[in-house]
Write a protein that binds this DNA or RNA. Structure first.
Lengths: 118, 118
DNA sequence: TGTTCATATGAATAATTGTTCATATGTATA
DNA sequence: TATACATATGAACAATTATTCATATGAACA
């Protein structure tokens, strides 16, 4: 890979715009992390889990009941949500109660909801 | 599939909570659409395209230059963004200029950014 | 300590998806 | 109309991922 490689494309590249935009792009790492975060929201099972947790903290098998799915599937997805720091949990005997980790989640959902319903 | 099927899980289902939460869940279709929307944000190429368009409208090959990717890849992704009504475009001769469709996108990005940087 | 049970996890499978290559479309101009 | 060129699209391939099944972990309690 060469430095300043130009990619085979069209001849009508607007150099000033390209340079200005390029210089203002956030670091790749940030953009990658952002995509990873949204990827977590991009699955209907996880969206349902999050929506359910808006209402109340719940144990794994409660969530499984609400979604009509088995315990293993929910547990796998809770792990993904946990790794993205979107849910937290507390243990009470054998039971583990999950809840939402912060308020950005609601804000993101609200904006998303506004987009799809307009 | 039976009506009111209970899924094999644990015996410790908290019925009141499950019923309350179940009754307050938005329709599946909404939750599915929401997941589909976030799925669009869940790819780093598309995140980069959106970030680039925050700065300026651009033609396809400008975007390709900024991202260091080929024209076809960008065009495919622009189609996904278009279908999700996240970008709009205008034609000027042979050139097609893309720009962001609405302001929810910025709001969603800001919240996402706050989540990953805290 | 041994059993029960809620939850977690590993492996396997099926489905989805991003990129590339090749080519099509459609606009401008000679 | 023929050519050039920006963009779009279809097919193919590789990679990722959601779910299931089977089993492991670890807490409570007899």
């Amino acid at each position: 890979m060469e430095e300043n490689e130009t990619f085979e494309c069209c001849d009508e590249v607007h150099d000033e715009v390209v340079e200005k935009v390029s210089s203002q792009m956030p670091p790749d790492e940030i953009l990658y992390d952002l995509a990873e975060l949204f990827k977590v929201f991009g699955d209907s099972t996880r969206v349902k889990i999050i929506c359910a947790l808006f209402e109340s903290e719940m144990c794994v098998c409660d969530i499984a009941q609400v979604l009509g799915m088995n315990q293993s599937a929910i547990s796998h997805q809770l792990r993904v949500l946990k790794q993205a720091r979107l849910v937290k949990y507390r243990r009470e005997g054998k039971t583990v109660y999950y809840s939402l980790a912060d308020s950005h989640i609601q804000a993101i959902f609200n904006q998303g909801f506004e987009h799809i319903t307009e």
